[in-house]
């Protein structure tokens, strides 16, 4: 039995401690927004946040995240209001859409630490997330767009 805190809610997971977080989320908790793409931390589709850091849940045993704050795409915002989600919609980023949860979760950590990312900064983080449909240019535009929103929000608040 492993206790996990996911999107502010507590869950008791009946599984072997070596089970990757991805499968606990999908098969035990029923949160399907986090995707399986490769199982070996190569594609980024399974990206979630653990204590605010981007983590590939497909290679993270549940034993390693006990007691930590886990956030999945479902917990990023209750209403599509995160600047990245807004930008994703404005730029019409997704095609098949399968990789986009992971793309957004990676980008969210990037934006939190860097609200004025250059193209190179974006490459440094987003190169870890594969999109086979080739939405990369739109992802880039959406991140720039969301960064603008974040900067404006900060200005308005100061």
């Amino acid at each position: 039995m492993v206790q996990l805190k996911i999107n502010q809610k507590k869950y008791e997971i009946e599984a072997d401690k070596s089970m990757p977080l991805l499968w606990a989320l999908r098969d035990k908790v029923g949160l399907n927004g986090t995707k399986f793409g490769c199982g070996v931390a190569q594609c980024g589709a399974c990206t979630v946040h653990v204590d605010g850091e981007a983590v590939r849940s497909c290679v993270t045993p549940i034993s390693a995240v006990e007691g930590k704050e886990i956030t999945t795409i479902e917990g990023l915002s209750p209403d599509l209001s995160h600047p990245l989600q807004q930008a994703w919609i404005a730029e019409d980023v997704p095609q098949c859409g399968y990789c986009q949860s992971g793309q957004i979760m990676s980008a969210a950590v990037l934006l939190k630490h860097n609200d004025q990312p250059t193209d190179e900064d974006i490459n440094d983080v987003m190169t870890g997330n594969i999109c086979r449909c080739g939405t990369y240019n739109r992802i880039r535009r959406a991140i720039h767009q969301a960064a603008k929103t974040v900067r404006k929000q900060k200005e308005d608040n100061s």
């Binding site: 070996v40 981007a54 983590v55 993270t60 983080v125």
Partner: peptide
């Protein structure tokens, strides 16, 4: 780099599976 740290993929110990980080 925040968003892609070493620990984004590398755990504190080797994990199950072929060619996992």
């Amino acid at each position: 780099i925040p968003g892609m740290k070493c620990m984004t993929c590398h755990q504190t110990q080797n994990v199950t599976g072929k060619r996992t980080p």
